[in-house]
């Protein structure tokens, strides 16, 4: 049953007519054309579809449209502000923390959600925070390096 659901997406109010139980990932990709959010497992197991809802990183394949009613959603497309790359994006770029790039949107958003809470994290804490995100190409070491250095850059400005 289609209903009208409003939320804030990448800083702008949006209203979507869709069933409340439709998964957010399809609303984003199919309805709103934001294809930066990827699909890897549709079961909350790979993190490719990670977005931020309010300040938490969640798998959008396992989050319904109804779940985000009235909330704030951030996708990879909304991360760079006024053409300025986000510190995590910058670090991924500098460290070449990706290969095929299919996990990258999810990785960057998971890292950003974590670092906002804890920019001065230890390597072990970063590993724990990223554990839900899979990378098949094996960019892990660089991703950890990138997250660590992004954390430093963010901690530095506080």
């Amino acid at each position: 049953m289609d209903t009208t659901v409003s939320f804030v997406l990448n800083g702008k109010a949006v209203t979507v007519r869709s069933p409340r139980d439709r998964m957010l990932v399809w609303v984003l990709r199919d309805e709103l054309g934001l294809t930066g959010t990827k699909v890897g497992c549709e079961a909350g197991l790979c993190g490719a579809c990670t977005v931020l809802v309010d300040i938490e990183a969640v798998p959008s394949c396992s989050t319904t449209l109804g779940d985000v009613a009235g909330k704030t959603v951030l996708t990879i497309e909304g991360l760079a502000l006024d053409g300025q790359l986000n510190p995590v994006q910058k670090a991924f770029q500098e460290h070449h923390a990706f290969q095929c790039g299919y996990c990258t949107s999810g990785m960057i958003l998971a890292a950003w959600a974590f670092l906002k809470k804890k920019p001065r994290a230890t390597r072990t804490e970063i590993v724990e925070a990223m554990e839900g995100n899979l990378c098949r190409c094996g960019a892990h070491v660089r991703i950890l390096d990138a997250v660590e250095s992004a954390g430093k850059a963010m901690g530095g400005v506080r």
Binding site: R29, T35, E77, A80, F92, H96, G101
Partner: peptide, 21 residues
Amino acid sequence: VPRKDALAKITGAAKYAGDLR
């Protein structure tokens, strides 16, 4: 050398087959 696919991949702009619409 900086990877040529970096910007597209870190901003979500890189198009994979499922992203064509």
